[in-house]
Structure formats: C-alpha cells, structure tokens
C-alpha cells in the first residue's frame, strides 16, 4: 500500500522538476524518508552523509543564496539532534528552509524510543518564526508540501510511517485552517496525523450511542487557526485532543494554551504520557499507549458521565 511518505517523495520530485530552486538534502536515510527519489534530478539532491547538524547548516547557506532547501531525515534526528542548528541557523535568521521529518512518533515502532520522535512538535513549536505541519493523509500531504514551498520562511513537516486511510476530502482542505470533518456538539475531538482516522472511527461508534462528537483535523499546529478553534469550543461541552506525540508540548498543549486564555473549557489530552515508549509494531504501541478509538470512546463516555 502506498504510504504518505511515498507521496512526499513523488510529489517533491514533481514540484522540483518545475521549481528549479528546490534542493533536497539527505543524511543517509533517503530510502526510508523517500527523499532519495529526488536524486533523479542530479546535483540538486545532496547526500550529506550521517552528519545532520552539518546538513542543517548547509541548508541555511543554500537558503541565503535564494535556493529552497528541503532537509530530510527521521523526525527524531532532524529536530532533536539539530535543535540548536535549527534555532540559530534557520529560525533566528528566518531562512526559507523546509525541514521534513519522517517516522514521527510511535510510527518508528520496532526501532524503539531512540527512533521515536515524541517531542519533535514541542521542539519545533517553541521556535519563533517556525511553522509546524502534520498532514493526516496523502491528499493533505500534497497540499501541505506544495503550500509550504510557496510559503517564504522556515517550516517543519512531520510525516508518519505506514499506511494512512484517506480521511480528507480534497476540496475541504484549506492550508493552515482547521478542517472540520464531522459536526457535533457534545465533544470536540481534535486530531492530527494518523490520529484523525481514529477520531473519525470513534465518533462513528459514539453516534450509535447518541453521543454527538465533532471531529476536526489540525494539520497546521503552528500557527493555530484560532478562529475555527474558538468556533469549535463554543459549540461543544469539552475537548479531547489526540496526537501521536507526547502530551507535553504537542498539538494538545498548543490547543490548551489558546483556549485557556480565550475560552476556558475542559480539555483532555490523549497522547504518549510523560514517558519513553518501547519497541513493538506501531499498532501494538498505539494500543498500549492509548492511541486508539476504544480509548477515545472510553474517555469521552466517562467524562460525560462524571462531569455533566
């Protein structure tokens, strides 16, 4: 089955054929991130070897000279390993670099905690000038990639590994806007990446029990679409966020920060708790760490019973 990262590789190549300023950089994992496809375009694919910090610095230099560099590696290395390089050489000078991290969160599965980026959103989100994006499916991947290349400034895109069910209707995707996939007024489920599918499935089951859940896909974690977020908050009794990331500093935190100030209401954050995970298949990990529709349903039902 074609994965979201396959679309990334293919679409990047297509964009690159037309937009000659694009340069793709890899740190010896291009076959996994799919950036290697770009080597078809010769010297505009740059193999930097296992030296991520240098790669990030080179991308900054390329951007200074007017190119549009796309630096790629696993999400865990491209953010954590290079945090200071991104901070000083990309975010602070506001350079037009697109940082792409694949195998986000628990989708790095069997490789274990050393390879599971459960803190990459937190790391990138706290940087001034940085935009943070996580597409939910292949259609959204295409739009996010095209639009982020049009945007002049630093962007971080996190990509999950593995098959992604289609959840978005292409006409409804509006770049940087929260995409409401299902209306409802009991609870608002806000999800990003692969968790959008789980949110939709949970909402469907809840409906059979007369619980009306709104489901929204947040592909743009920074800057957050505050208007739509407030609209949602006004409609529902409480909010549940679910993300393939630590509950500290991720999308749920971003949502909480805004609503705590502008429209306080109960917010339950589902994600990896303050812990490192472990090696296993991604689906088993989602199960163990609570990233399932069953867990969403359970939490929502309990909350409705106890609080209202």
């Amino acid at each position: 089955m074609e994965e979201i990262r396959d679309i990334f590789g293919k679409e990047l190549l297509e964009i690159g054929k037309k937009e000659k300023r694009i340069i793709v950089l890899d740190a010896d994992v291009g076959s996994s991130t799919r950036s290697l496809k770009f080597s078809e375009l010769g010297q505009r694919f740059i193999q930097c070897g296992i030296a991520e910090q240098n790669m990030v610095g080179i991308s900054a230099g390329l951007a200074l000279k007017g190119m549009i560099p796309i630096v790629t590696s696993f999400a865990v290395f491209i953010t954590g390993r290079c945090y200071d390089q991104i901070r000083i050489s990309i975010a602070y000078p506001k350079l037009n670099v697109k940082i792409v991290g694949s195998h986000a969160g628990l989708t790095a599965g069997p490789d274990g905690p050393t390879h599971q980026a459960i803190d990459d959103i937190a790391l990138m989100r706290d940087l001034p000038n940085m935009m943070v994006l996580e597409p939910a499916d292949k259609k959204e991947m295409k739009i996010v990639l095209n639009e982020s290349i049009k945007h002049n400034g630093p962007v971080y895109i996190r990509i999950n590994r593995g098959g992604s069910p289609e959840v978005c209707n292409i006409d409804d995707i509006c770049f940087k806007k929260i995409n409401i996939l299902k209306k409802g007024n009991d609870v608002g489920i806000l999800a990003s990446g692969f968790m959008v599918d789980k949110a939709l499935k949970a909402a469907k089951i809840l409906e059979t029990e007369h619980i009306n859940a709104l489901v929204a896909d947040i592909h743009c974690i920074k800057p957050l679409d505050v208007d739509t977020l407030l609209d949602i908050a006004r409609k529902v009794r409480f909010i549940l966020t679910i993300e393939n990331h630590s509950i500290i500093g991720g999308m749920g935190s971003a949502v909480s920060e805004i609503l705590a100030e502008l429209y306080p209401l109960p917010i339950i954050k589902v994600g990896v708790k303050d812990t490192f995970a472990e090696s296993a298949d991604t689906m088993q990990l989602f199960e163990k760490y609570g990233l399932t529709e069953a867990n969403i349903i359970d939490i929502i039902k309990r909350h409705l019973k106890s609080n209202f």
Binding site: N54, V56, Q85, I88, S89
Partner: peptide, 23 residues
C-alpha cells in the same frame, strides 16, 4: 551576512553558500 553566536555552525552555512553558487 549570517546570524551566528552558537559556535561551530558557520562553516556549514558557508558550505551551503558555496554550494549554491556552484549549482
């Protein structure tokens, strides 16, 4: 030409500039 201050980063940036000029 470039923001610096965290030591060790400027050589990579210079390489990026030189590489862009080559390309």
């Amino acid at each position: 030409d470039m923001s610096t201050g965290s030591l060790g980063q400027g050589l990579s940036v210079g390489i990026g500039c030189a590489l862009a000029d080559k390309i």
